[in-house]
Each structure stands twice: as C-alpha cells, then as structure tokens.
Design a protein around this nucleic acid. Structure first.
Lengths: 258, 258
DNA sequence: CTATATATGACTGAAGTCAATCATAAAATT
DNA sequence: AATTTTATGATTGACTTCAGTCATATATAG
C-alpha cells in the first residue's frame, strides 16, 4: 500500500544516516532495522543512489559525497519532490552548446541532477556552487566552470567580490536561478551579497529562468532582488492562477506551471 | 604451486593499495587486475583483514584509513616522507595575516597538510587546487579563496583562461610552488598552460618559494618555467652542495637544504 | 467523492559471493 | 638431495544479493 511521502522521506533519510555511521550494512540488516521488506530497502538504496547521496556496491553502499557539504544536504531534503519536477521542466529548456549559469541552492541542484541523468550535448555550465560542480564534472559532453572567490565550506559555495568580477568573463545564454520568496512585487532573497551577485547574473544573461517552488509563493525575504520584468521564464509548481505575475504588466515572460 | 614470499607480500600490498584508492572492488575484478584465482584473492583479503588492514564486507572490503581521510590525494601523500619534510620547512615560512598562493600538486599539498595541523593566524590562501581548498577549509583562522576556470575533475584542478585573469584580483605575498624538474638553467614543467599560469603567479607575488624534491634535481621537463633569478626561497631535500643554484650568479635567494 | 498515482510486499530466476576441501607444484628446510 | 611446508587453482554447495514482475492497498489529486 501507498504510504505518506513524509514517512518515506524520513525513512530514507534515516537509511542515509545509518550508512554514514556504519559504512556497510547487509540488506537483511536494513530490513530488520527499518521494518521494511527487502524490495523496499533496495528501492530506497536505488533512490539514494539516483540522488547522488550514496554509491551502491554489490552487497552494500558507500557514502562519499555527504560529509563534504553538511548543511547543503540538510536543506536539500525539503520539498524534494517538487524540486525534482521543476528540475525536469528546466532541463528541457537547456539548448545544446549553450552556456548556462547555475545558481547555488537546492532547487537548481535538483535541475543539475536531472541534467546529469539526461545530458545536453556541448553545454558549458558556469556556477559558484561546488556541489553542482562536483556533480556535473565528468559528465560526457558537459564542461564545468567555477567562479572565483572565497570558499564557504558549510554551504559549499564560492562567494565574495571576486565572484562578481569573474562572472564578467563569461557570456551567459541562460541563467537558471531561484529565490527564497516571490510575490506581486517580484523576487526576494535573504542576503544582500547574494542579491548583488544575482543582479549581476541577471544583467549578463540573455535569458533568465527562475525556478520557484510553490512553498515560496507570497513570501518575502529581507532583500529585494528584482521585479518581474527581468524574468523571461518562470517555472513553478504553484497553482497557475495564483501566480502573482498575471497582475504584472511588466511581466512578458513565459510560464511553466506544473 | 608455492610462490616466493616476496611476491605474495608485494601482491597483497598492491591489493591493499587498490582498496585504498578504489574503496570497493568486486572479487572478479581483483582476480582480473592481479591475475590470480578467486580463491587466492579471498585468501589475500582474509590475510589483510587478519592484519587489521581492512574490514571485509559481503562483496568487498572497506579500508579503515579511507574513512579518516576521504581525499585520496591525502592518502597518496602518506608514504612520501620527503615531501612532508619540505612541507614542514615551508610551513614555518608562512607569515601571520599574509596572502599565500598554493600551487596545485602533491608537493604543495603536503605543505597544506602541515599547515592544517599547525595553522598560522589570519592567513588567506589562494589556490586553483580543489583538494587543497577542501583540506584547508574550515580551519580556524584561515580563509580559502578559489580561482575561477574550468574544473578538471581528474586532477581536481581549476584551469583555463579565467584562472590567469582571476589571479590579478589578488595581491599575493608568498607563492608556494613546485616544478617537475630543475637544473642549472632553472625550473621546468610539463605543460605549457600550467607554465603560463605559474609565470603569472611569479609576476604577481612578492616572494616566490619553491619546494623541490631531490628526485627532481637534474631533470628537465618539456617547458621552461623560469631561471633562478625569480626564486626567493629554495627548499629541497637534495644534498646541499649538489644543488645547481650555487653556480648561478643570478640566484640571490635563500636555501633550505634538509 | 472518484479516479489516479504510487509505495509496498511477495515471488522469481539469475548472478555474485563465500568457506571448505583437495591435489599439485614450487619454495623452504633439513 | 630428500623432506617438509605452503601457496595455488579447481571444484563444490550453501548463502546472499539483485532486478524485474505483479497484485494490492492507500495516499494524493481532481
């Protein structure tokens, strides 16, 4: 029988934690500890592998990725399913041989996961997110470029004056970004430095694609990022008619409501 | 048939190394890589487990060492005692609150390990090496800055046009570098792009510190990097009198021979 | 409230892993 | 040189893991 998403996610999270602690657990043991069938245990492992959290081996799984970016993974867990949907839609917008900027954050990370599973030929990805860089590197036909700046360990992000300066070296076709909140007035984020950086991205990109989960609708964050005039594409899983952009004459972009 | 002890030990040592590098190897793969039967492979694994070198799991084995030091570069370093010596000397040259450039490569990585164990207050490290960045990040009192550019996964290095350009953003006090060979004429490296980058580092740094293992003495690599005039400090474990710098009038630096 | 989507457990055959046994050939010992 | 030791490969049967299929119950969406 079907089970609530929350329970499933919680269980998988627990499994990931177990693997972190114990490094190796026989499948039979997983079943016993989580009170699930072998089939479900395997499905959970497959899921964690698909999300790059673990590497499966015959008879077990290795956890390599996780210790690197602790707080990043914590955040990744919220609204995971919605983000995956947004990511799939965004992925299909990527044009072969284009240069794309990938914003730091879990929403765009979900896009990166989708892109890795179904790569687009000759794409050059510019990012200041190390998790995204590590995820995408080595993928056939994809080039990863990191921006310069101070390396902030906990978030796995590169930031600072140099980050904005280095952005100018690149000619961005599509920028895939997110924000912490959005309403009638526009987009909001929590940190002034982040906003300053994002504004530079907006200035330099031909097309601005924003991926905004429904949970962010109607919310404001401390710093105003931009009005809707700068948004070329809006991807959201909020109910279409509720989106605040319809009342905005300035908005001339395209909407993907899913 | 029986086989000489040396051969057996050498093979088991190799297997241990393989496990350290690859973390997990199917038994079939072990057989193929070492040209031995499955039975022998199992016996070797059992031996290594008995000696507390590895922990066997169903279908593979885990190396304890792995969990402590996730970066495989770091593992490579363990045996190279010469580099550790150089690193210790170099570390003591680092001045509090200075900005240091750390070259990519194992020699300077060894220096980074020493610095991590005994940090210098308020130092800012600029590097294009991701292993070094990951190693040093989070260390109390130390700031890590990454240069921009294409992320080359295999070497864990950031490189390209942008790397040289971003270097200009920084005001480097001390540059800690290495090379693949050195002789009377000066320093040599194998890759033209690397050399171009290193020359920019030399131009921009107040003090140039070169760490050169004895094994590199007298050797040349395809591309000429610099004569001895640019070297402010030379650290080497080669016999002092053999060093090629004494015959060079242009060399006005300091020598640490250990 | 109805219809759809999906998370689950049971079952399957195929494939991988394991420990144990045995004969053999080469090293090590005497 | 003769004897002992032992490292090896082949073989066996038991066990574990794995991916796939299917029916079912329930959460979720409309």
């Amino acid at each position: 029988m079907k089970v609530a998403y929350e329970l499933v996610n919680a269980r998988r999270e627990k499994l990931a934690q177990m693997l972190q602690d114990q490094a190796y657990i026989p499948i039979s043991n997983v079943c016993a500890q989580l009170n699930i069938s072998e089939a479900t245990a395997r499905r959970d492992l497959a899921y964690l592998e698909a999300n790059q959290r673990i590497v499966r081996t015959y008879g077990g799984a290795l956890v390599e990725y996780n210790q690197k970016f602790p707080s990043f993974l914590e955040r990744q867990q919220v609204e995971l399913k919605g983000k995956k949907k947004l990511g799939k839609v965004a992925r299909d917008l990527i044009i072969p041989k284009s240069t794309c900027f990938f914003d730091a954050g879990t929403t765009i990370y979900a896009l990166a996961i989708e892109l890795k599973q179904k790569p687009v030929e000759g794409v050059k990805i510019v990012t200041n997110s190390l998790p995204i860089a590590e995820l995408m590197t080595g993928v056939q036909g994809i080039e990863v470029h990191l921006l310069a700046g101070q390396y902030l360990h906990r978030q796995g992000v590169i930031f600072g004056e140099a980050t904005i300066k280095t952005l100018r070296f690149y000619d961005i076709d599509d920028a895939f970004m997110s924000a912490e909140g959005f309403d009638q007035k526009g987009l909001w984020n929590s940190d002034a430095t982040v906003v300053e950086f994002q504004r530079q991205v907006i200035r330099q990109s031909s097309r601005k694609v924003f991926c905004l989960g429904a949970e962010k609708m109607g919310k404001r964050a401390p710093v105003f990022l931009s009005d809707w005039g700068n948004v070329n594409v809006l991807i959201s899983d909020a109910i279409s008619s509720d989106l605040p952009v319809y009342s905005q004459a300035q908005f001339k972009g395209k909407i993907f409501s899913i």
